[in-house]
Write a protein that binds this DNA or RNA. Structure first.
Lengths: 235, 235
DNA sequence: AAATCGCTTGCGGGTTCCCGCACATTTCTT
DNA sequence: AAGAAATGTGCGGGAACCCGCAAGCGATTT
């Protein structure tokens, strides 16, 4: 069984290599590349049933790379690992994972034994595993009425990209008032309404979302790459 | 000579430990801690003439830690090292470095030999060294009329915190119109004016600044910690 | 000494945003 | 099948923002 590791930090790559060779004897061959583009190119060959993917990478981030890989080979099993428990990543992943496949999401701070378990469970057994830290985070958000719905999250991304209400309405195919309604609920859920009238709600919401790790720069940069073509064609 | 290493990633800490022991025979004792708070506590003893500081850390980030260390022991020589060439970090550092001391800023991606040189130059020789990648970046910004002045940067931070124009005026002790003037030049320098009228300039400026690595979440979280007390006392 | 440059401030008006009120539609629950 | 919850749309007004015009001030340049 062949395994592909995509990881730009050499020390982390080394550690992963070591952990894999200790825990997964059924892996016969390991390829290691250092950025998302190369990872996608390499995976296009279709030779890799299993991939380990870092989420923070220059060029193309982990979620984008995964989408490319899965669109060519939907059965690929992918283990994501990341420095941060960002809700934005989990949201991005759950949106693109095919029905037929398996994935996992573990933090780089988890100890080697748990990483070994996750590697086996996801890449060999085909299960779905999300680290407690990330999932708890997500669950807590889901229960306390602060979970962002799909449309709310979309509007949040567009606002953070710097779009105007009207342009968001065009892009997401809704009316101006609807966009503003989504914004109202965003302000509630992000706690901007409870902070007194001192703030500019729009920018404060972006700040809260980023501080609360529901949004990150990588996600925004990726979203911008999708926005630009639409913008040109639209004007 | 005693050395303090503050680094939350165990692999990077290990690599640093190894590089130091290979390149700096005059270091007799090395202490390693994993977060900013502990680093500051440890450094308060005054036993460390030299410190290596990671910039991305949970709790208190590298720039804040450095400020605390330098305010107690201004002669401490500090080598910062970081994953990213963020202008915000360099700006934060140059604002707080004492006249009497030395510092360095190197990227984690630089090869061991250059890291060894920087370690010796800063911690032993007391020179000031900034990696080419970071400095070039900074220099380029300085020459192409896109450098942000001190007051512009302050306003940028406040805008990104979600403050309203009026509140920024109060906080920075200027008139409303002055704040808006700083915003105008920010829009120019961040290239928001050249993008056509489709954007909300205020949020777009935040986006450009973060994408362009002139601002990052760590800096904003630190700025927020300074803002909150002022906000309470002011209302 | 004159000129230039950067920062500051006031005024006024056009634009966008924020959001209460009211109502239609869709989706999920029970 | 009835009710609840989420989402979509229009109208209108008050607030905040964006910014041209005009004028003053301190520092550096020539």
């Amino acid at each position: 069984m062949k395994l592909l590791i995509v990881e730009d930090d050499q020390f982390h790559a080394g550690f992963m290599l070591e952990t894999v060779s200790k825990n997964l004897p059924e892996v016969s061959e390991i390829t290691c590349v250092a950025d998302g583009m190369k990872g996608v190119e390499e995976a296009e060959s279709g030779l890799y049933p299993a991939v380990v993917l870092d989420l923070q990478m220059p060029g193309r981030n982990g979620v984008e790379a995964a989408r490319a890989i899965w669109s060519a080979h939907p059965d690929t099993r992918i283990l994501f690992w990341s420095n941060y428990a960002d809700e934005a990543y989990l949201r991005g992943i759950t949106n693109i994972v095919p029905e037929t496949s398996a994935y996992g999401y573990v933090l780089k701070t988890t100890q080697a034994s748990r990483l070994g378990l996750a590697l086996r469970a996801v890449l060999i057994e085909g299960q779905i595993i999300v680290d407690r830290e990330i999932n708890g985070f997500h669950q807590r958000a889901m229960t306390t009425h602060t979970a962002l719905s799909e449309s709310e999250f979309n509007v949040l991304v567009d606002v953070a990209l710097g779009l105007t209400d009207k342009l968001i309405a065009d892009r997401r195919a809704m009316s101006l008032r609807s966009v503003q309604n989504r914004l109202l609920s965003l302000y509630q859920k992000l706690g901007v309404d409870d902070e007194g009238g001192a703030f500019n709600k729009r920018t404060r919401a972006i700040n809260r979302a980023m501080s609360g790790r529901m949004l990150n720069i990588e996600t925004l940069i990726a979203a911008e790459r999708e926005l630009l073509p639409w913008l040109e064609q639209h004007s």
